[in-house]
């Protein structure tokens, strides 16, 4: 079975690799957003040079890492959930449910393939652009990069697990587009894409750090920027893994309920 899901991962990667124009357009968009946010952060850090424990260079690195991860984490669409909702609305999902492959496992494999491509195709270039225009604080230690890679990998699983729940909502809510849009905006805010979570004041900051969305940017960025090192970095990875397991489990539960619903309604 491992070979099968491996093939689905590869297919997901290849599928997105064919969208060349879309990839170029995405890189352009990420770069534009990176520029806009960078300037607003510069204005902020000019006045508060150590806001949230970041130097200005770290804050700018954070911006561009965020833009680099945006597509991989499917934070503004491009993931599988819209397609899955379409299949639920058209009833085609009933066919998927009777396939020998597990629904969640199948979509997870396909989405990891997609994320892998987006990381390369849409992650590297915006960060390079950012590094050209601004002084970034990228680490030299390979260990830090390795930990970062693990944190990103776990983050994509958390991102998938959340979007799987969003996708399943189409069984009960019929305006899929609205749900997806709300989940984007909430995700952008609580992942730290708009403002680093460590710059959130007081209790709001603590709550935001503990929510699963932080795994999509804040946690990987902190690992990369050396804010979390050694045992703390491992703790960060464990935090992500914990949310991944919990959310995948929730998805499994909801998928069971949905399946029963499909069976009752006859598809």
């Amino acid at each position: 079975m491992g070979g099968f899901y491996g093939a689905v991962v590869v297919r997901g990667f290849r599928r997105y690799a064919t969208y060349r124009v879309a990839t170029a357009a995405g890189v352009f968009t990420n770069t534009v957003f990176g520029l806009i946010i960078s300037y607003s952060y510069i204005a902020l850090w000019d006045q508060r040079p150590h806001l949230g424990g970041y130097t200005e260079a770290q804050a700018l690195t954070y911006v561009w890492v965020g833009q680099g991860l945006l597509a991989a984490m499917a934070q503004m669409g491009g993931g599988f959930e819209t397609e899955m909702m379409g299949r639920i609305n058209s009833g085609a999902i009933a066919v998927d449910l009777y396939r020998p492959a597990d629904l969640q496992g199948w979509w997870l494999a396909a989405d990891l393939g997609r994320a892998g491509f987006q990381l390369l195709g849409r992650g590297v270039l915006p960060i390079a652009c950012g590094a050209l225009v601004f002084d970034l604080a990228l680490p030299a230690s390979p260990l830090t990069w390795l930990l970062f890679a693990l944190a990103v990998a776990l983050g994509t699983v958390v991102s998938f697990a959340i979007r799987f729940l969003v996708g399943l909502s189409a069984f009960w809510l019929l305006d899929g587009a609205g749900v997806v849009q709300v989940s984007w905006i909430v995700g952008l805010f609580f992942s730290g894409m708009l403002l680093p979570l460590n710059a959130f004041p007081g209790a709001l900051g603590d709550v935001a750090q503990a929510l699963p969305w932080s795994a999509m940017l804040q946690v990987p960025a902190d690992v990369l920027l050396g804010q979390r090192q050694g045992a703390d970095a491992l703790l960060a990875l464990a935090f992500e893994a914990g949310w991944a397991v919990a959310l995948l489990g929730a998805g499994r539960l909801l998928q069971g309920l949905a399946t029963r619903r499909v069976v009752v309604h006859g598809g």
């Binding site: 060349r20 357009a25 995405g26 968009t29 534009v32 503004m76």
Partner: peptide
């Protein structure tokens, strides 16, 4: 460029 809808978002 049908796939370039993203540019509009920027």
């Amino acid at each position: 460029a049908g796939d370039a809808a993203q540019v509009q978002n920027s």
